[in-house]
Design a protein around this nucleic acid. Structure first.
Lengths: 246, 246
DNA sequence: CGGCAGCGTTGCGTTGGATCAATGCACGCG
DNA sequence: CGCGTGCATTGATCCAACGCAACGCTGCCG
């Protein structure tokens, strides 16, 4: 049931109770994941079906079009969800952060590819197994459905952004939304970590890498943000909000 | 339970059995709507909670941000689903056709506005009533969830289109996808009806009205399509497919 | 230590689609 | 019928973002 026994090497402090740390009861993302709606006995039932799965930077969790044999809870790290056009143009559909569930829709095939942006830990379930549990627990289905509804409004936000916003607005909106998402997982900070590269941001925002870079330096020179290695410090969130304008 | 007693005036032939035509058993979209998963007794239960509601061209069914008191099945006609930016920029998130369900996510507030593109007939349910029925019928929830998953992949298609496709590709893709959607409701034809205006298409595709018009005339002059009043005849679908390229 | 590989930034010319401005065209109405 | 109103088309110009190429930085490895 547990994979990645090397997981403790990577964390900053030593593990004193490895056994229980892998259980759902101690799961770091339990309270923000779909599992939050489950009572303890149900949790144990699900735990019996779960496996931990770790990925390194760049590794794919699954690919677009592939039969969906598994679904996943993201425990740690972040992933890029992409679609590819035959000629190589790419659209990043979103980024999955800890607490997110991959395979919400329980569909037969994955509609996107998922690749690790850095070291990632996930909790894996067989799709059929998971679907059977869901079928037996309407409140879990309701929770999935609620998340799907939320995803749908996020997708709508993104369509509005892609269709009707300028490059500068896109970048400002992106930084703010990333800050807000990190805030929901507990990390409240003026410095927003950017686990993805410029090209990923560009493909998410419907821009080129160069334009993203230019907009970031423009915001930096305007003292709205401060570019720091691996992230951005939001110096003037109010100005960003004004740029994002809604 | 029945509204719009004038409905027969608009249809081509005379009604012989008005009573039953308003019932779910004779509903034109039952087999393609969420109701298709319901058995007859369940259908009657739902029917008791339903009202028919008709709209004229331009009328709003609900507005973005409004508390969602009702959810709807579209029976006839089509609607435009939009989001507005404070400065007036608009993004059309989609078009609802007969058989579509509005309010899938059962959320507290509507995330978009819905406006009739022409005469529309809907089947209305109180959201709370409907939610109660759903809570009691897991297979109905599963059906809603499946539709939500489908909507999510449509939204992803649209994000890819908005972010990474050229104007010509956008228009070609739009015409083909509209043809396919009409095909699913039974209307198979080389001539695709365009119930929306140029501005609506533009706001759906992230373009201006002028660009949409130019691309349509370009395709027309290339003999890929033929512009006809109120629609488009697809003369060379293969060429369009090539332009849409996936 | 030097070289080189992988990002990110910057400058500069190009361009696809936006913008502005007529004009066309179908309709409903006095 | 002639006029007005609302949409669609077309043409002329503009500009935001793209594409390309050079350059910079950082970390890795021989």
């Amino acid at each position: 049931m547990l994979v990645d026994t090397g997981s403790c090497e990577r964390s900053a402090h030593v593990c004193h109770h490895k056994r229980s740390e892998d259980g759902c009861a101690d799961c770091k993302v339990r309270l923000i994941s779909v599992c939050s709606v489950l009572a303890l006995p149900e949790l144990e039932e699900l735990e019996a079906l779960s496996q931990h799965l770790a990925l390194d930077k760049g590794q794919a969790l699954f690919a677009q079009g592939q039969a969906a044999t598994s679904v996943f809870n993201v425990i740690e790290g972040s992933l890029r969800l992409t679609r590819l056009l035959p000629d190589g143009r790419r659209q990043v559909m979103g980024f999955a952060l800890p607490g997110d569930f991959l395979g919400l829709a329980l569909q037969e095939r994955h509609s996107v590819s998922a690749e690790a942006l850095g070291p990632v830990k996930t909790c894996r379930f067989g799709r059929q197994d998971f679907a059977a549990v869901v079928a037996a627990k309407p409140h879990l289905l309701a929770s999935l459905h609620e998340r799907a509804g939320y995803e749908l409004t996020l997708a709508q936000d993104q369509m509005l952004l892609l269709g009707r916003r300028t490059a500068e607005e896109k970048v400002a909106t992106f930084l703010l939304s990333l800050r807000d998402r990190f805030a929901r997982t507990g990390h409240t900070s003026v410095t927003v970590e950017l686990p993805m590269g410029r090209q990923d941001m560009a493909d998410y925002l419907g821009l080129t890498m160069e334009t993203v870079s230019r907009m970031l330096t423009r915001l930096d020179r305007a003292h709205a943000i401060l570019l720091v290695p691996g992230g951005v410090r939001l110096l003037d969130p109010a100005r960003l909000e004004r740029l994002a304008s809604n």
